[in-house]
């Protein structure tokens, strides 16, 4: 059993302590917006915020995440108001297949909290998610659009 605080809600989940947070989120909490891509923290599709820090949830165990504030893509919006990254993604038609975009958006949201006006170098350093469709150009443009708003 583990108690996890996800998107402001407490979940009591029947999972072993070494279960990767990704799978507890997807299968036990039922929040499937966070995606599985590699399981070895390489691709970033499973990125969530843990205490505000963009983290690859496949590489964190449930026991490590317990007691911390976890935010997934489903919890990024405030009620009915989308997060500015989500709004920019819609306005600029960023996603192609979209599978990596939950993780991409979470990584970008964390970057913008830390650096509201990131340079290209900041983006290069912080955004290391894989996108096989190749949306990087739109991702970069959307980040700059948000930053200059």
């Amino acid at each position: 059993m583990a108690n996890l605080t996800i998107n402001g809600k407490t979940f009591t989940l029947d999972v072993e302590p070494d279960t990767p947070l990704l799978w507890a989120i997807r299968e036990n909490a039922g929040l499937t917006g966070t995606k599985y891509g590699c399981g070895i923290a390489q691709c970033g599709a499973c990125t969530v915020h843990i205490d505000g820090v963009a983290t690859r949830s496949c590489g964190v165990s449930v026991s490590e995440a317990a007691g911390k504030k976890i935010t997934t893509i489903e919890g990024l919006a405030s009620g009915n108001t989308l997060h500015k990254v989500q709004e920019a993604w819609i306005a600029q038609d960023v996603p192609q297949c979209g599978y990596c975009q939950s993780g991409m958006i979470m990584a970008v949201a964390a970057l913008l909290t830390e650096k509201p006006k990131p340079t290209d170098a900041d983006i290069d350093e912080a955004i290391t998610n894989i996108c096989r469709c190749g949306t990087f150009q739109q991702v970069r443009e959307a980040i700059h659009t948000i930053a200059s708003a």
Binding site: G30, T32, I73, W89, V94, Y99, Q101
Partner: peptide, 21 residues
């Protein structure tokens, strides 16, 4: 024109095969 399938891809609500329940 804008794609017709973008919004759900930004909110985690698009259902991929892996998400089927």
């Amino acid at each position: 024109v804008k794609r017709l399938d973008t919004a759900e891809k930004t909110t985690g609500t698009m259902i991929y095969g892996i998400d089927v329940k």
